[in-house]
Design a protein around this nucleic acid. Structure first.
Lengths: 138, 138
DNA sequence: CTTTGTTATAACCATAACGGTTATAACAAG
DNA sequence: CTTGTTATAACCGTTATGGTTATAACAAAG
């Protein structure tokens, strides 16, 4: 991966729209604001639904939040859209040579060290919630 | 991206090997410890060289560090192997609809917020240096 | 000068993620 | 029954990735 997928930023966009104009949030309307295909939007809304963040029903247009905006953190969204694999931001090369002291230990050493870096990032994501963002969409 | 490329973890592996057994660090030897193809190793060593971390010369086998292990942080390595694009971990969807208040502002709002999360991660990477790692390869 | 072991790099390939697109089915309300 | 919607499968072009082969250039030893 060169970059984390736009699914994340699109998901934040979607949730912001629902928070701001709960009335008209059909897939097509949202797609118009995001500037992408409605199917892309619905795919992501399906993930947000599965994560318990939004309420969408087949057939009936419009979506609604299942939590208050200040209860939805960026980390919640990030997790919902399944944007990194197996909750491991860093991929490690596999099966280094166990005969070599470096090869034998690098996996566990890096694992713990990189996990801390990942946690620092996620911890920062958890400090921002949707409520703070929509204040800035005036 | 689902995950950050193994180039990063392989680069740390390479640098650790050079720090620990400076003598025999040919591309083939390193590839044996990493358990991959020598060309993959040399590609990454080329990046480390370009970043000024390592000294390698065509023809002559063996590599050496250009800085002390405690002067090489994980962030230096991470930057050297060019593992994320344009120094932006998070990719944003482009050209949201400027007519919509959300579409008009989401880019800048997310940009600043996500940059902070990214910085938190990188800041943590910068706190660990190669010297600390090789202590743990006993 | 030639041989040997190396670095450097281009080229190619299979795999997978991504985001867009079309098509089809199912559902709800008027 | 019609209309507008959600849900989802299927396909496609683009790109990153990591492995592989091949070729050139270089340096040291003989």
């Amino acid at each position: 991966m060169k970059q984390i997928s736009t699914r994340f930023s699109i998901a934040v966009h979607i949730l912001s729209l629902i928070a701001v104009s709960p009335g008209d949030c059909t897939g097509d309307y949202i797609a118009g604001s995001v500037n992408t295909n409605p199917v892309v939007v619905r795919r992501i809304m399906g993930m947000l639904k599965k994560a318990g963040l939004v309420d969408v029903r087949p057939g009936v247009g419009g979506a609604s939040l299942r939590k208050r905006p200040d209860e939805i953190t960026l980390l919640n969204v990030y997790r919902a859209v399944d944007v990194i694999e197996g909750n491991q931001l860093f991929r490690l090369h596999e099966a280094p040579n166990p005969v070599c002291p470096v090869g034998r230990n690098i996996e566990s050493v890096l694992q713990s060290e990189l996990k801390e870096a990942q946690t620092a990032m996620e911890q920062r994501l958890s400090q921002t919630h949707l409520g703070q963002l929509i204040e800035r969409f005036t």
